[in-house]
Design a binder for these strands. Structure first.
Length: 103
DNA sequence: CCATTGACTCGGA
DNA sequence: GTCCGAGCCAATG
């Protein structure tokens, strides 16, 4: 486990229910604003073995990044269950639900 | 070391 | 608004 990865995981684990964060935002807090893609990779790796609220992580457009075919629906339901309103295209109001505070 | 991989992001057409 | 190309970064084989 590298420091960067650990940081990312910690951040994700700390996202409160009903809130979401963008990949870029997480990468920034972890120390590398441009490493959004790395965050994605970590999510894949970690979500397999660890329980992470990966469904609270979305892209900068404020939408669920998954394709309709993937576990898109699952993530969508998880979010709505936590109080996050998800639009027809997985659209989420970042102004409303983006989590800015750390820890 | 080099090449590949990712649920990304940004800017321009 | 949408689509596309280029940039970006760290982990992996």
């Amino acid at each position: 486990m590298t420091p960067f990865t650990e940081k990312v995981v910690e951040i994700i684990k700390q996202i409160p229910p009903g809130k979401v964060m963008t990949y870029g935002q997480i990468a920034g807090l972890a120390g590398s604003p441009r490493a959004a893609r790395q965050v994605v990779r970590i999510l894949h790796s970690m979500s397999r073995k660890h329980k992470l609220p990966w469904h609270r992580v979305i892209n900068a457009k404020g939408q669920i990044a998954l394709q309709e075919e993937d576990p898109f629906e699952e993530q969508r339901l998880n979010l709505e269950m936590e109080g996050v309103e998800v639009g027809i295209h997985g659209k989420i109001n970042l102004e409303e639900y983006r989590w800015d505070l750390e820890e």
